[in-house]
Amino acid sequence: MYDVVTSGYMSIDRIVKVDSPLKVGHTSIILNSDNTRPYYGGCPINVSYIMAKLGMNPLPLLRVGEDNDTLGFLQYLKDANVPLNGLKTIENESSSNCYIVSDRDNNHVTIFYPGAMDAKYASELPDEYFEDTRLALITVGSYNDNSEFYSKCQKHGIPIVFGTKLDYDAFPVSFLKEILLSSKIIFSNEHEREEINELMGIDEITDLFDMGKAELIVTTLGENGSECFEKTEQGIIHKKIKVCPTKSFVDATGAGDSYIAGFLYGYLNGYDTEASCQMGSVMASFIIEAVGCTTNAPDLKRFNQRLEEYKRNL
């Protein structure tokens, strides 16, 4: 049994930090010497990698190319015990890759090449991936891939977790609305929550409870922590979760994905919603302490040590 099957773009990232914002006709000085180092990521990979490090069994569904960078990427997955059953290689193509350029204020510009994850390579997914899994995580990917993944989830009755990314190429409006109404758990940040409210014509995000299948809605609030809304027979339960302190703030890239991974670890192991959110907060605190979306991902022992410290100080 897989704990969660994940969809979306994988990416081999190169992170470039510049001294000043990008401007036409202006040369920006690169600050980090590791600007050519590949970091492995992408929403489904970040979540799968972190959960595997905690001893869970996630299955990312992805396509890779035949380029040299892919060899390091596959080894990185193997080292964390991420299953590779859902991997497909595209001949004469490279894996998805991108350059993430950020300035001193942490403003980002991302340049992305879809490579093997391009929509033109999308194909039908085997039913076997969906026959024995507990949850399905939908993140940003090509519309063709998202549509196929979603249809398989519906066919096999798998509860959907939506890691909101408001990319209207990946999720055309009608499709996005359908996913929001079909998802059991919805994650977003504050900006995405406001846009969802506007898109769905609602005043509060909790209105989705009466419109669709949502049972849990979680919003991350940056340095202000997070909050969750849970639909119960007694009504809607609202909890605010404090941010977990970090040893240092280095890079916020991947923090949202790590929160999802920590939350799903708790949720799938039977913890209540508040405790699962606390686990999400703790996991995010590790990731922002190093460059890269999973560079500082902890094993279960380190994770539990910080979790206990966090809970003692609440």
Score class of each variant (00 low, 15 high):
R14M: 07
A116T: 07
A252P: 15
A255G: 05
V291K: 12
A255E: 06
V218M: 03
I196Q: 01
D257Q: 05
R193V: 06
L135I: 09
K239F: 08
C153P: 02
R302A: 12
E289L: 06
V47H: 11
N107R: 15
I160M: 04
E215R: 14
A136F: 01
Y310A: 04
S123Y: 07
K152E: 10
S285C: 03
D3G: 10
V16G: 00
D13E: 09
F303T: 02
Y168G: 12
E66F: 09
D19V: 07
E192S: 01
C43D: 12
F175Y: 03
Y113D: 09
G141H: 02
V4P: 00
L166C: 03
I205S: 00
T253L: 07
L199A: 06
T246F: 02
K23Q: 14
D103Y: 00
S102I: 11
T110D: 05
F175E: 01
T220K: 07
T220A: 01
V250C: 00
S123A: 14
K165N: 14
R193N: 13
I260C: 03
F175D: 01
V173M: 11
D299L: 05
L166K: 07
S48D: 01
Y121Q: 09
T110P: 04
R193D: 06
K23L: 11
F130D: 11
T36M: 13
I90Q: 02
A116G: 04
I185H: 08
S258A: 14
V18G: 00
I90P: 02
R306Q: 12
G225D: 05
F249C: 02
V47M: 11
M51G: 05
G292L: 02
Y143R: 14
K301P: 06
Q154P: 06
L181P: 02
S33V: 13
N197W: 05
V282E: 01
K78R: 15
G201N: 06
M1R: 13
N189P: 02
V250G: 00
L22V: 11
N81M: 11
N85K: 14
S11N: 15
F249H: 11
F149T: 10
I45F: 01
A252C: 10
T133V: 15
G235K: 09
I186T: 02
P245M: 03
I111L: 12
D69P: 07
N304P: 09
T295F: 01
I160T: 08
K311R: 14
D34Y: 05
V82Y: 00
I138R: 07
L166M: 13
V282M: 05
N296T: 12
E230H: 08
S96Y: 03
I179Y: 03
Y271N: 13
A170T: 14
A136S: 11
G86Y: 04
I90M: 04
C277W: 02
T232A: 01
I138E: 04
E93D: 08
L22Q: 08
E194V: 10
I288V: 15
T220H: 02
M279L: 12
Y150V: 14
S174I: 11
G55Q: 07
L208N: 02
L181T: 06
A170I: 10
